[in-house]
Design a binder for these strands. Structure first.
Lengths: 195, 195
DNA sequence: GTAAACTCTTAAGGTAGATTAAGAATCGGG
DNA sequence: CCCGATTCTTAATCTACCTTAAGAGTTTAC
């Protein structure tokens, strides 16, 4: 199992000893997804919290009119799950789909509860994850209110460096909240400006 | 002290005995604000978590270009604080201002820590508050992506029933992410449709 | 390996919502 | 109670972004 990246990720917020580390690793499941395969479909209960080891996922919402809105991308070293559905074990609002062949390590709700019980450190990890998620979301809301499409495009490039070359234009457009046609024309204008 | 409403609010998520209730109440501070007075200014550290007993607050963000974006309203029975600033004791991103004469009950960060220590029930209360805040925000993001100004106006009316008559049009416009002029013309269209 | 199905681009025309301006209504301070 | 400052409205003009359409490039499926 490719455990190095996830341990590194944990180490950013908590410190575990060898026994705790092994216990944590024993609770993980490995899963490989092909491009376009779903990790979670809207409506299902989100039973796992997933960490991306390689590849890339997209988290998106299908509105009643049938158009897709990409809410976030999760390339390697990102966590992806429907927080609401995982916490309440209710039907998921979002779908999670692989946009490249992707490998994830995931932990079930039951195992996470076990972990919280046996290794109290994870309370902190969880709390920080919630906090970070909330703060990131808040920032995105206020930025979206305050900036136009081209500024949001720049912010996307800062937040996800290099990802523009791995993700379909239409998905980037959806993330930015514009049509693919408009993104295309923004990109052209941007290129022309460099000559 | 007007403690009835806040106890009722707590009772929605946790159950306290008489001793715990008294201890909780002993940690609260009362504060009265005049219309236009600030409870928190952007940049300050948010030292209190505040509950609105009467009146109404607005939480807003001043973008670099100097225009205001209202993020939420807090009429009676709502909590208001800058979650990020309160949690990390960092400079606040948002300002909180009274838009009517307002009475709040607030608890300091230190007292909240004390409370968490002595009455573990509040761990749950806090976790639920974070969770709810996150979920509400997430809903707002996806709704905003998926709907136009007039639909958002309807959603505002559902979320804050009766508030349209208490809040300035310009603040509602800012909350919806449109100009006051455009809100005005939406309202006119809406009225005309009823004849 | 080729047809069908997506995806990206370009361009023309359309619309939601911004901007500017100016008058009417309302509010707030002395 | 009055005057200045906000706030709300209406209307004209403008712009960011959408829609539709169509051709070129790229994947996918058989």
């Amino acid at each position: 199992m490719q455990s190095q990246l996830i341990l590194q990720n944990l180490a950013e917020s908590i410190r575990l000893d060898a026994v705790e580390t092994d216990f944590f690793l024993s609770l993980l499941h490995e899963q490989k997804l092909r491009r376009r395969e779903y990790l979670l479909q809207a409506g299902e209960v989100c039973r796992y919290q997933s960490f991306v080891v390689s590849g890339c996922l997209k988290v998106s919402y299908l509105d009643p009119a049938g158009s897709e809105h990409v809410v976030k991308f999760a390339p390697e070293n990102w966590w992806a799950f429907d927080l609401e559905s995982f916490a309440l074990q209710s039907g998921a609002f979002y779908s999670i789909q692989a946009i490249e062949d992707t490998e994830v390590l995931k932990i079930s709700r039951a195992n996470m509860d076990l972990l919280l019980d046996r290794v109290p450190q994870f309370e902190k990890f969880n709390r920080l994850m919630y906090q970070t998620a909330y703060i990131a979301l808040q920032r995105r809301v206020t930025q979206n209110l305050a900036s136009k499409a081209d500024e949001r495009y720049q912010q996307f490039q800062v937040k996800y460096p290099g990802l523009q070359n791995r993700v379909a234009q239409k998905d980037i457009a959806s993330y930015l909240g514009v049509t693919p046609e408009f993104l295309s024309s923004m990109r052209r204008r941007e290129m022309l400006m460099h000559f």
